[in-house]
C-alpha cells in the first residue's frame, strides 16, 4: 500500500505531463485543419519541455542562480539550458509552418487536409 502511494506521489507529475502530451498528439492527428494541427504540435512540444524541466527539479531546491549562501540546494541547470533554446527554435519553426500554411491557402483556397487531397486527386486524374 505504501509502495503504491510512493509510486503515485513520485510519478504523478510525469503522468500529468503524459496526459497533456497525448491531448496534443490527438489534436495533431485527429484534426484535418492545418492550423489546428500546428497548435496540437505546439501543445505536444510544450509538454515535452515540461517533462524535461520536471526531471531537473530537486526537492527543496531553488532556481540555479548562485546566491552565495551556504547549503543552498539548486535545481539542475542543464535541462533549463536545453529547453530555453528549444523554445525559441520552436517559435521559429512554428512561424515557418504558418508561412507554409498561408501559401497552401493561397494555392488551394483551403486549409482542410481532406479538401487539399481531393483537389490533388482531381488534378492527378485529369492529367
Amino acid at each position: 500500500m505504501d509502495a503504491a502511494f510512493a509510486l503515485i506521489a513520485g510519478h504523478a507529475n510525469y503522468w500529468l505531463v503524459v496526459i497533456l502530451m497525448m491531448i496534443g498528439l490527438y489534436v495533431a492527428i485527429a484534426r484535418g485543419n492545418l492550423v489546428k494541427k500546428i497548435v496540437g504540435l505546439n501543445l505536444f512540444q510544450t509538454s515535452v519541455f515540461m517533462l524535461y524541466i520536471s526531471m531537473g527539479k530537486v526537492e527543496g531546491g531553488t532556481a540555479p542562480i548562485l546566491t552565495g549562501l551556504p547549503a543552498t540546494v539548486y535545481s539542475n541547470p542543464l535541462p533549463h539550458v536545453l529547453i530555453l533554446t528549444a523554445i525559441v527554435v520552436g517559435i521559429s519553426t512554428t512561424a515557418l509552418a504558418l508561412a507554409l500554411v498561408v501559401r497552401i491557402r493561397e494555392a488551394y483556397g483551403t486549409i482542410e487536409e481532406d479538401e487539399i487531397l481531393e483537389i490533388e486527386r482531381d488534378v492527378g486524374s485529369k492529367s
Binding site: 517559435i91 521559429s92 512561424a95 504558418l98 508561412a99 498561408v102
Partner: peptide, 16 residues
C-alpha cells in the same frame, strides 16, 4: 538575431 528574426517574420505576415 532573435529580435531581427521575430520582427522580420511579423513583417512578412503583416505585409500580406
Amino acid at each position: 538575431t532573435v529580435a531581427a528574426a521575430m520582427t522580420a517574420i511579423f513583417l512578412a505576415f503583416a505585409g500580406r
